[in-house]
Amino acid sequence: MNGIVFKFRSGVAWRDVPERYGSWRSLHTRFRRWAADGTFTPTLQAPQARADAAGNIDWLVSVDSTIVRTHQHAAGARKGGGGRSAGRGAG
């Protein structure tokens, strides 16, 4: 568990987790298995419920849309290319 916590707290890649936590492959496999079978759900819900009851969680969420990236073809360009927009006159 400490190796998994280290990985997410530090932000390193799985391969860069220190050897003292064991093989990075084992840690990654264990994490994926626990995530799939729901092991983390009660592990995270209990302290979250205690913190919420104590008023220590601010549930306000802010989303900054400037970091959302999209493919160039999804950026609103017209399909078919016609060269003129529908709102412009012929002259």
Rank of each mutant, 00 (worst) to 15 (best):
I67R: 14
D37V: 09
Q45W: 01
Q72K: 07
A90C: 08
G87K: 02
R78N: 06
H71W: 04
H71M: 05
F40P: 12
K79S: 15
S62R: 12
L60R: 15
T41W: 01
V63I: 15
T43P: 01
R88T: 10
G83M: 07
G80F: 00
G87A: 08
T70C: 07
S85T: 11
H71N: 10
Q72P: 11
S62D: 15
Q72M: 10
V68K: 04
R78F: 02
T39A: 09
A51S: 10
G55N: 02
R50T: 08
L44D: 03
R88Q: 11
P47F: 01
V68M: 07
A49Y: 00
F31L: 06
G87N: 06
I67F: 04
L44I: 14
R32G: 06
W59Q: 11
G82S: 14
A90D: 11
G80M: 00
T70S: 12
N56F: 06
R69M: 05
R50P: 00
A46D: 03
A75F: 02
I57Y: 02
A77N: 09
F40R: 14
D58C: 05
A53I: 02
G87S: 04
S65D: 13
A36H: 02
I57F: 04
W59H: 12
A74V: 08
F31V: 04
L44C: 13
A35W: 07
P47K: 02
K79F: 10
G82H: 12
R33A: 12
G55M: 01
V68S: 06
S62A: 14
G80W: 01
G89E: 11
D58T: 08
H73T: 08
Q45L: 06
G38A: 06
D58F: 00
K79P: 13
L44H: 11
F31E: 05
W34H: 13
P47Y: 03
A53V: 01
D37K: 09
G80S: 04
S65K: 13
P47G: 05
R50F: 01
T70M: 11
G82L: 11
G89V: 05
P47H: 02
R88A: 10
R88V: 10
I67V: 14
P42M: 05
G81R: 15
R69E: 01
Q72I: 13
I67Q: 13
T43W: 05
T70F: 05
T39Y: 03
D58E: 13
T43N: 12
G38I: 06
R50I: 04
A75K: 15
K79D: 14
Q48K: 12
G83W: 05
W59D: 13
H73A: 12
W59I: 09
R50K: 15
G83P: 03
T43Q: 14
G82F: 07
S65Y: 10
A51L: 15
V68P: 00
F31Y: 15
G81H: 12
A54W: 02
W59G: 08
R84P: 00
V68Y: 03
A35M: 09
G87Y: 02
V68W: 01
F40E: 15
D58N: 14
A54V: 07
A86Q: 06
N56Q: 15
G89W: 02
T39S: 09
L60H: 11
T39F: 03
D64C: 03
R69P: 00
Q45D: 14
P42T: 12
R32M: 10
G82M: 08
R78H: 07
S85P: 00
S85C: 13
